[in-house]
């Protein structure tokens, strides 16, 4: 496994309104790999993503993105480098094409219909939905479109926050394949927060287990089969049963 870090954390702390959300986070997401993050709700997983994308800044500690301190990035440059897709898959008003065009529109450019169709194909959506109103899409279609929209910026790192948790099993499998496909096709570093330990184990190369704002265990995803930490053992047992 490559040990080059796409994102590296050194003693990162973050608190909000007096509550500590992240405590002394140290670790890394390996470049070009699929890392899965698991842990109970309230472990600080989503907040960690917001720090990586520059939507929030840590109170202390350092985050290195592609070997460059995060504070040295211009916010806009950082957000195009580190893409993020969220569980709610927010759509702007308008059709699929307008949503795919959004990242380009923000730069005063226009996406070509050709490229839009290519992106739909990459994420496994039919090209004839290009002019369908985004309100009429299913949950799975919205998630795929949300990922396709993030790909418009050609991110080197893609963060996926619980994107399958509200989907049925078939749509979940579709997204799992999609994550592997994007990782192979573009060499994109993928970091995926999931509730599903089975997914974390089969899709991930590398896994982080987070609890109460701390990183409890990290390593190759097979660690989930035989965790060393007592709390992780309990968590894994509860989830798999």
């Amino acid at each position: 496994m490559s040990t080059q870090a796409a994102i590296r954390f050194e003693n990162v702390f973050y608190s909000m309104r007096g509550d500590t959300i992240l405590k002394n986070i140290t670790g890394m997401f390996p470049e070009g790999q699929i890392t899965t993050i698991v842990g109970p709700s309230g472990a600080g997983k989503s907040t960690l993503f917001k720090l990586c994308n520059g939507l929030q800044s840590p109170d202390a500690g350092e985050i290195m993105i592609s070997d460059k301190p995060i504070v040295d990035y211009e916010p806009i440059e950082l957000r195009r480098h580190v893409g993020i897709a969220l569980q709610q898959a927010t759509m702007i008003r308008g059709d699929v094409m307008e949503n795919l065009n959004l990242p380009q529109q923000l730069q005063g450019k226009q996406i070509t219909e050709q490229r839009a169709k290519e992106l739909l194909e990459v994420v496994g959506l039919k090209q004839d939905i290009l002019h369908r109103d985004s309100k009429d899409l299913s949950g799975g279609q919205r998630q795929k479109l949300s990922i396709a929209r993030t790909l418009v910026n050609y991110p080197k790192i893609l963060l996926l926050d619980e994107i399958t948790s509200s989907l049925d099993r078939v749509s979940q499998q579709d997204i799992e394949h999609l994550i592997q496909k994007i990782n192979k096709k573009y060499g994109t570093t993928m970091v995926w927060i999931t509730h599903n330990l089975e997914q974390a184990l089969t899709i991930g190369n590398y896994t982080w287990v987070m609890m109460e704002g701390e990183v409890v265990e990290t390593g190759e995803s097979s660690l989930l089969k035989d965790p060393k930490d007592k709390r992780v053992k309990q968590f894994v047992k509860g989830e798999f049963e």
Binding site: R79, R80, L86, T90, I92, P103, L106, N153
Partner: peptide, 16 residues
């Protein structure tokens, strides 16, 4: 808030 956050994550400016 979701829309505001979406545009920021995609590299939009605060004004956008």
């Amino acid at each position: 808030q979701d829309e505001t956050e979406l545009i920021l994550t995609l590299g939009g400016t605060p004004k956008q």
